[in-house]
């Protein structure tokens, strides 16, 4: 199939704008119920500031967090004929969004630290193609800040330690991260696969709506269990103490080598900025999230 690059660029720009200046309803709902649940004044103040900030950002159409992150696009569609054009459209949308929304230019060379000034660089924005058998294109834009990236971690658990080893590593990683990834976080977990697959799965888990559960019963039980354990740590909003350390735990899994058990923990700060749209072949589109 062929995707009209003009439409795609327009939709990508709108998604970046929506993602930077508002939050999905599921995230706002989770933050509001966290505010209700907390009883310590410090935790309540932090959540109140977060909620007020979201409200102001949505009203003023300004980026709710100054760290407008690294940009990733996920294109779900049938096999695409005009791959090069589509890639260019997503890059052009990124440049335009950086200039006009505006987004903070964050892309720097890893050695020289020189900023490209437009959020475009080697392999950036990240574009991932997910092939489906649908007759439409689904475009997801994700912007993710640096603070939560810095605290993410991988462990190659000894398979003999089993699920206990997995749980301990995840809880320990949350505690070690403390205040730094801007809790309450959303904890994305990639379980199994290979080192490479585990982080890709953790990111896909983060793209799922809050409250959604893995269709595998053992995995969904683990999601619930970790959600409860992490919220018993007392790290709390912004790491200043409280009942809400995470808004959710979402896990995706893959089968792994019989000698390995990879666990990727990928933090998402409370500013869980993602937006998606369905683009039909006639060029019309609608927002999904």
């Amino acid at each position: 199939m062929r995707i009209n690059p003009k439409t795609l660029e327009e939709v990508a720009f709108k998604l970046l704008e929506k993602a930077a200046t508002s939050l999905p309803d599921d995230v706002k709902k989770a933050l509001k119920s966290a505010y209700e649940r907390e009883d310590s004044p410090t935790a309540k103040t932090e959540l109140k500031n977060i909620l007020d900030n979201i409200e102001s950002a949505e009203k003023l159409k300004k980026p709710l967090c100054q760290d407008t992150g690294m940009i990733s696009f996920y294109v779900r569609s049938r096999e695409i004929e005009n791959f090069v054009e589509v890639r260019k459209a997503l890059i052009d949308a990124t440049v335009k969004a950086t200039e006009t929304i505006p987004l903070r230019p964050n892309a720097v060379h890893p050695i020289t630290r020189k900023n490209t000034g437009n959020n475009v660089g080697e392999h950036i924005p990240h574009i991932e193609w997910i092939y489906t058998d649908q007759d439409h294109v689904e475009l997801i834009a994700s912007i993710k800040g640096g603070g939560s990236e810095n605290m993410s971690a991988l462990a190659m658990i000894t398979p003999g330690l089993g699920v206990k080893g997995v749980k301990k590593f995840i809880v320990d990683t949350v505690v070690k991260a403390g205040a730094q990834p801007c809790p309450p976080t959303i904890v994305g977990v990639g379980l199994g696969g290979t080192v490479e697959i585990s982080f890709k799965l953790a990111k896909l888990a983060l793209l799922r709506p809050l409250g959604s559960r893995n269709k595998d019963k053992d995995i969904s039980r683990l999601e619930d269990e970790l959600f409860n354990l992490i919220n018993q740590t007392g790290v709390g909003p912004m790491g200043l103490g409280g009942k809400t350390t995470c808004l959710d735990v979402k896990i995706e899994y893959a089968h792994c080598h019989t000698a390995t058990l990879p666990v990727a923990v990928y933090f998402q700060c409370w500013a869980d900025r993602r937006a998606s749209a369905k683009i039909s072949l006639d060029g019309s589109f609608e927002f999904i999230v």
Binding site: N53, L64, G147, C182
Partner: peptide
């Protein structure tokens, strides 16, 4: 401490 992510409030 200022609330992390509250970029519009700070501005």
């Amino acid at each position: 401490h200022f609330t992390g992510g509250a970029g519009v409030l700070a501005a």
